[in-house]
Computed example of a mutant assay.
Amino acid sequence: MPIEPNWGIKKNSDGKNTFWFGFKEHLVVTTKSQYIASRLMTSGNLSDSNAAIPLLKKVENLFPGHFTTTILDAGYDLPLITRVSNACSDLL
């Protein structure tokens, strides 16, 4: 994962570009307690979907068989992320 500060850009809800420079923190948060189960810091321009698989695998390694369901927004709706998420759940 890239870890150098960098420019990021995305469209906000008004359709206007939002810019930032620096880093992004990608988090896995439990739905019940809102505790952070895992985190990953990357360059500010890395897409959230690119961090999903490393985070899913990290959570499964840290808490094997503990999490049974993954809730993600539409930005993560990619076949590979779905397969990895299902594989982690199937290890129970």
Rank of each mutant, 00 (worst) to 15 (best):
G22Y: 09
G8Q: 02
V59A: 00
T70G: 15
A37N: 02
I53Q: 01
D90L: 12
H66G: 01
I81K: 01
F23H: 13
G8A: 06
K11M: 10
F67R: 01
N50I: 05
V59S: 00
S38L: 08
K58P: 03
K32W: 05
K10A: 11
M1D: 00
D73S: 13
C88P: 01
Q34I: 08
V28M: 02
T31K: 04
G8P: 02
D77R: 15
T68Q: 10
T31N: 06
N45V: 01
F67A: 05
A51E: 02
L55W: 01
N17C: 09
P5G: 15
H26P: 09
T30A: 14
L72Y: 00
I36Q: 03
K10P: 00
F67P: 06
L78A: 15
N50W: 03
S33C: 04
A87I: 10
W20A: 14
S38W: 07
V28Q: 00
D90C: 11
K11G: 05
F23V: 04
P2K: 09
S43G: 12
T82P: 03
T69E: 13
T42K: 01
H66P: 03
L91G: 08
S13R: 15
K10T: 10
L78G: 13
F63S: 11
L80F: 09
G8Y: 04
K32T: 08
E4M: 14
A52F: 07
T42D: 05
G44C: 04
F21K: 13
P79R: 10
K16N: 12
S47F: 05
D14L: 14
E25F: 10
A37M: 07
L80D: 13
